[in-house]
Simulated assay, not measured.
Amino acid sequence: MVAVSGAEAKDYKAAEKPGASGYFNVLEDGGFWTVGYTGEAGQSNREIAEYAMKRAADLAAEQHQEWFAVLTTTNRMVQAGVADDLQMRAGNFMGSGAGAGTSAPVSGAPSTNSQNNTGTFGGEAVPNNVLERWQPRRVRQTILVVELGSGDKASFPGLDHQPEIFPATSPAPVGPSK
């Protein structure tokens, strides 16, 4: 019998928005690229690092370069999503905060509500102590600073070490046209 691990690989994908899981890349002022992958809950450091490397290799190919050099690597925990994630995570019984008694009266006079509540909870305002205890999910993220290049000679002025160089990903073969 072969034991199968309960952990399945997550899909490799582009991040749909800032803070979302998936890969991202940004061209920095000095010509270097910051490439990263933000994982999902339960995703391993190794898988996230491999996905960041895959994105760097794909990016090098997309930029018509032969290789990429990894100048720095950072592995860290980050908050997933955004602070407004409470309503999404709590489900449909959470209101949007409209009419929760947190706004000032139309006359412009200060609100008489002594608690600063946000959202609704079964039609009532959510107490601050509930909101203060909620923490956004934390997930793993790998950030690479890479330099793209072509040819056999690579120089990295200003670095005190020779970075490791990896080949760009070959484009996937295109099937015959019908």
Rank of each mutant, 00 (worst) to 15 (best):
F68Q: 03
Q65E: 08
R76Y: 05
F166V: 11
D29K: 04
R137Y: 12
G101K: 07
D84V: 14
G151Y: 04
D85Q: 09
E50G: 14
N75Y: 02
A52H: 03
D29W: 04
T38V: 07
A90H: 08
Q79A: 15
V2W: 12
R55E: 07
E132W: 08
T34N: 09
P173L: 03
A109H: 06
G42W: 02
R89K: 10
E147L: 13
S103Y: 11
S114E: 14
S114Q: 13
F68A: 04
M94F: 12
N113G: 09
Q87W: 02
G108A: 03
R133H: 10
L131A: 00
E28W: 02
A98C: 15
E16T: 15
H161S: 11
Q141R: 05
G123I: 00
G149F: 00
S96P: 01
G95E: 01
A109R: 10
M77H: 13
A3W: 12
R137V: 11
F24K: 14
G22D: 00
S44N: 10
T34Q: 06
A80E: 05
S177G: 12
R55S: 12
P18W: 12
P173E: 08
A14H: 13
P163R: 03
E8R: 06
P163Y: 02
G119L: 09
W134S: 04
F156Y: 14
W134N: 01
D160R: 06
N113L: 01
T72K: 10
R46S: 10
A9P: 14
K178I: 14
K54P: 01
Q87I: 04
Y23F: 13
Q115W: 03
V2E: 15
W33H: 06
S170Q: 15
P127D: 11
F32N: 08
F156V: 06
S177T: 12
I143Y: 01
